[in-house]
């Protein structure tokens, strides 16, 4: 493991001060499940680690009026144990369930999953589909970014020097909405996604017409990808397999997957279409129940 200096700030202001004083030479540490393997291999270009675990402003998971505030330090297993998450945000619960192993879920945090900015990150694709608001704090003060403006490229985010992700907020979906998350890998669990997908459908009350939809995919582009062209073909339709096929075509046209040791790009593109159809079908079935039998 490479050498580093270590800090344990106990307030957000102190954490920001340390990180900005060290000018990009120090890294925040949350659960460590992405950072520790990199430090073990000596792949971190920096000499300091700033443990965020004692910063109270980054903790907490709960409803604030009509949105859910997810503190950056929220672990994946606490997402799974949360009632609001399972009731209102089934795609988030699904992604949390599909992430890593029980041991990893007890360590891994939401903030770490997002700031690590892997194109395959399971929570990133979901928070993109839920139009999460990313709360940042840095030497210049606090600011809020839309999920899609946060991810810049593989391992790259919009965080500037000294900036920390403090929380993500997501709004309770409108009535008659339903979301779904699907992940495709080579094993049933303990697997980084070859492709993952999150969708949300909102139906008009008392009808089976689609009022709004959101479609996001991961591991098929340099960042998690929102596919608005696919969303557009669904709005105003009654869904069904022809509509899902059309949306899947748009997704397959929009993605830009790479070949790597885990999969070919062509296979990823195919799976992106398959997951889009299945996720839409799953979300639609459940949204239809709530819109027509409420």
């Amino acid at each position: 493991m490479q050498d580093f200096d270590y800090w344990e700030p106990d307030s957000l202001a102190e954490a920001v001060t340390i990180l900005s004083a060290l000018k990009g030479q120090a890294f925040p540490l949350a659960g460590g499940t992405d950072l520790l393997p990199k430090l073990q291999k000596g792949q971190v270009s920096g000499s300091g680690v700033v443990n965020l675990k004692h910063v109270p402003e980054l903790a907490g998971l709960g409803m604030e009026r009509t949105s859910l505030r997810i503190g950056a330090l929220t672990t994946v297993s606490s997402l799974l144990a949360n009632k609001e998450v399972s009731t209102y945000f089934p795609a988030l619960a699904g992604a949390a369930r599909a992430l890593g192993t029980p041991q990893i879920r007890n360590l891994a945090t939401v903030g770490g999953n997002l700031c690590n900015a892997s194109p395959a990150a399971d929570l990133a694709v979901v928070l993109l589909a839920y139009e999460g608001r990313f709360k940042l704090a840095g030497p210049g003060g606090a600011r809020t970014l839309a999920a899609q403006d946060f991810f810049i490229g593989p391992g790259q985010t919009a965080l500037t020097q000294g900036e920390i992700l403090t929380a993500v907020e997501i709004d309770i979906p409108p009535l008659h909405s339903r979301s779904a998350f699907l992940k495709h890998g080579l094993r049933k669990s303990h697997e980084i996604a070859l492709v993952n997908a999150a969708v949300q459908l909102t139906l008009e009350s008392g009808t089976d017409k689609i009022a709004a939809t959101r479609i996001a995919l991961g591991a098929v582009a340099p960042t998690p990808l929102r596919v608005r062209t696919a969303e557009a073909v669904l709005v105003g339709t009654r869904g069904g397999s022809a509509a899902w096929d059309e949306a899947a075509e748009k997704v397959m046209a929009a993605v830009a997957p790479i070949d790597d040791i885990r999969s070919t790009g062509a296979y990823r593109r195919h799976i992106a279409g398959v997951l889009t159809r299945r996720a839409l079908h799953e979300a639609w079935g459940e949204a239809y129940e709530t819109a027509n039998h409420a």
Partner: peptide, 10 residues
């Protein structure tokens, strides 16, 4: 938890 991913100080 995986003790290989936890710093002793942490």
């Amino acid at each position: 938890v995986n003790s290989c991913l936890v710093l002793a100080v942490d």
